[in-house]
């Protein structure tokens, strides 16, 4: 099954409330896998909330890699990713007083970073979900595409670096949904809320992203000679 259905573990998840802006909490284990608790984080948060600059720097160093990687994957551009990492942490500095610990701090921060990236893309006037990509299955990505292609099994044949490169080659609209759902672990209802599209759009966009990745990876596995 592709759906992220990791079992929730109630004993490890003492009454985790729904995070702000989401209609459905992600399975706890998934959140913990993505956002494991970091030693010293709670103290640093408490001190940063009191205006302690050194504590804020500790938080930056704890989370800069995750936030920057997220920005980079969504944007595909180092300069923009650095700018928005900076913006996300400045926003964190302004808002850290409002963090009440009712969700994991990293979940809260990453959501803030996603919003910063989306806001940036909206300002640039880029459609977050391309309508023609979504509504009209193109020849390229339509269902019939698969007929007649050789059965080249992907399983076991790709490493993470190859996959990362292929993700970079996805069109922005596909990449966004793929990164949010398959890499970051957001649910379709959350993504639909963030991208202001329908849940069906999010699902179909994700599917097309995976289909495109499959073609890219197969081309790659065949030595770039094409199918």
């Amino acid at each position: 099954m592709i759906k992220n259905t990791l079992q929730t573990n109630d004993s490890a998840a003492p009454s985790m409330p729904v995070q702000p802006l989401t209609s459905e909490a992600r399975p706890m284990q998934q959140q913990q896998r993505r956002n494991p608790p970091i030693a010293g984080e709670l103290t640093a948060i408490a001190n940063a909330q009191q205006g302690d600059g050194a504590a804020f720097e500790i938080l930056y160093n704890m989370h800069k890699r995750r936030v920057y990687s997220l920005c980079l994957r969504m944007l595909g551009n180092v300069a923009e990713a650095e700018d928005l990492t900076q913006e996300a942490f400045l926003q964190l500095h302004r808002k850290i007083g409002t963090f009440r610990g009712d969700s994991a701090f990293s979940t809260w921060l990453h959501r803030m970073a996603v919003n910063v990236v989306l806001m940036h893309l909206r300002k640039k006037g880029l459609p977050l979900v391309s309508l023609e990509e979504t509504l009209e299955p193109s020849q390229e990505d339509g269902p019939r595409k698969d007929f007649g292609t050789r059965d080249l099994r992907l399983s076991g044949s790709i490493d993470r670096v190859t996959l990362e490169r292929a993700v970079e080659e996805l069109p922005p609209g596909y990449r966004m949904v793929f990164v949010l759902h398959d890499v970051e672990g957001y649910e379709h209802n959350e993504i639909a809320g963030m991208l202001q599209c329908s849940i069906g759009n999010s699902k179909s966009q994700l599917h097309k992203a995976r289909m495109r990745l499959r073609s890219l990876l197969k081309e790659n596995a065949e030595g770039g000679t094409g199918a």
Partner: peptide, 28 residues
């Protein structure tokens, strides 16, 4: 289906590996 499931499973293993340049903290 096998390929698509494999891609989704591999995506979960993509970890944050990129670091921002030190200039980002200086700017902050």
């Amino acid at each position: 289906v096998r390929d698509l499931e494999y891609i989704a499973a591999q995506a979960k293993l993509i970890m944050p590996i990129h670091d921002p340049s030190p200039a980002v903290w200086d700017n902050i």
